[in-house]
Nucleic acid binder design. Structure first.
Lengths: 206, 206
DNA sequence: GATTTCAGATGACAATTGTCACATTCTTAT
DNA sequence: ATAAGAATGTGACAATTGTCATCTGAAATC
């Protein structure tokens, strides 16, 4: 498995070469320290995988990846990051990168490379754990932590469907006044001002 | 690395045991062929990873995973599938599974297991390529098709943040009355009744 | 130059909304 | 049996909201 490593910090590049080659299954055919290096090394060596830092002083890893993927959409690019920065990761995903690994997590680098080599994509749990939330459009949020009762939650859900008090009342077989009272309590508990903020809260916490 | 393997087809379970243990790094401590087996084996052996088929005749792997994850959210569950079925995969993601591997792809099983063991999550490229689209949803919706102008869209966005008319007016340097007029037009264009429905509409079309 | 268009504003109005204080049940625990 | 509590309801009130007809001034169009 031929790999090109690109990291802003040259020392990291060399260390990685040592670590990776110690596995006996990876051959580091090039080490670079800028986005431009990444492009040049990739085009010259055509490695199986390009392992690259996201943040680099000269050209960002993302920009480099964009250029590489534009000319070779099959390029397997795996990012190395220090922190999992949402914005970056999502941009990386969009452009078709194969994942990212936290630098701290040395032991997982070789297995991750192999998984990518075999056509998988690899991500840290922190990102993956957020994906479901992003995908999930129709689930009811859990408001119990705010001391919201079952009935109150029902009303919240109806407000979040755009119903007015009269409609909610008739849907739940309550008087309109009761619905108002409930709503008043709900707003107090959630520290919100009006039903629109409640709907917003609902969807932002969905 | 202790692994429990569960597959509808007993032969697959045994074959996997052979393949996995040949690597010298995996110890298959249990083989099952139903969702119930998965639950029992998981609770008994507390393996590092549960490798499980999604489709099984008696209890689906997803149902079993749900039960296991309910009592042990840290459980590392990796699904084996024959085809990458969107619905299933997304449900698996939602409940916190660590990924899935196509059965055909024998070579990638061991590396994927190791990546998961090291805290990563692993997915086939087909799913990953769809995630960006799903994530894309967190951007401002495009209302132009409803004949909504730039300014109107601004107001919609502020309503969707929960602002009242006075706040919107001061944010956009308009009079409150103007904001009301805008809103009135917006509601007319979108065939909605009030600002709450507008906020709801915003998030549903996000 | 006259006219139309458009963004913004005003004021009036009714409807809806949120708040509050106070009833009325009905259940439950003491 | 009584007190406490919920769940539900009422009426009054002010604030916010949505609608509408109308006005202004500037820019664009003719």
């Amino acid at each position: 498995m031929k790999v090109v490593v690109v990291d802003d910090d040259k020392l990291v590049g060399v260390s990685l070469k040592t670590i990776l080659e110690a596995s006996g299954e990876v051959q580091v055919v090039g080490i670079g320290c800028s986005g431009q290096d990444a492009i040049d090394l990739y085009r010259h060596h055509k490695p199986d995988i390009l392992l690259m830092d996201i943040r680099m002083s000269s050209m960002s890893g993302l920009d480099a990846a964009e250029i590489i993927l534009a000319s070779d959409p099959a390029a397997r690019i795996l990012f190395l990051t220090t922190f999992s920065d949402d914005e970056y990761i999502i941009r990386a995903l969009k452009m078709g990168a194969r994942g990212y690994i936290l630098k701290q997590n040395y032991e997982s680098i070789v297995p991750s490379l192999k998984a990518v080599y075999n056509g998988q994509s690899v991500f840290g749990d922190d990102i993956v754990s957020r994906i479901p939330d992003m995908l999930q459009k129709n689930r009811k949020p859990d408001f119990s932590k705010y001391g919201i009762s079952e009935k109150e939650a029902e009303i919240i859900a109806l407000v979040a469907e755009g119903m007015n008090n009269k409609e909610i009342a008739s849907a739940l077989y309550l008087s309109e006044g009761t619905v108002r009272n409930y709503l008043s309590v709900i707003l107090e508990k959630l520290q919100l001002r009006d039903r629109t903020q409640l709907a917003v809260f609902y969807y932002k916490n969905q």
